[in-house]
């Protein structure tokens, strides 16, 4: 049913991603789909990497390691945003489009009061994407 599955990854909080990553791996195996990790970084140094190249390398390594552990091939693609606080959602949408994905599996936090003003990335992705979005909580 699904051929290309995109998983947004936040390398600064990779410990919170376990559920989403495992679900995505299971789905990919089940449907024989291609799995692609995407991530958005600032162009400035972050807690993860000194520059966008280093960030892309780390993401690639993260994807490769997960792929070996799961016994499937996982691709990765890094994006930069000039104003990540605001631009993350739009960039992730574009990432899903670029990858030709038919499913996005994304980890999200529990909805709270503040979500009435600034929704979660997962929530916003689900309401704007034309493809299926699986929000894991």
């Amino acid at each position: 049913m699904f051929k290309r599955i995109v998983v947004p990854v936040d390398l600064a909080h990779s410990d919170l991603l376990a559920n989403a990553l495992d679900t995505a791996t299971d789905l990919a195996k089940h449907y024989g789909a291609k799995l692609i990790y995407v991530s958005v970084t600032a162009e400035t140094p972050t807690s993860v990497a000194h520059n966008p190249k280093e960030f892309a390398d780390k993401l690639a390594k993260f994807a490769a390691d997960r792929g070996v552990a799961a016994g499937i091939e996982i691709e990765s693609k890094a994006y930069t945003a000039t104003d990540p606080t605001i631009d993350v959602d739009a960039t992730l949408l574009r990432a899903a489009e670029d990858a030709g994905a038919d499913l996005v599996v994304i980890a999200s936090h529990k909805p709270g009061f503040a979500d009435y003003f600034w929704g979660s990335h997962g929530g916003r992705l689900a309401s704007h994407a034309t493809i299926s979005v699986f929000v894991i909580r």
Partner: peptide, 16 residues
């Protein structure tokens, strides 16, 4: 098109 260049960052694994 502010992000176009960044789309290719994966293609170059090491800094030139």
């Amino acid at each position: 098109d502010s992000n176009d260049e960044s789309d290719n960052v994966t293609s170059e694994a090491l800094p030139a």
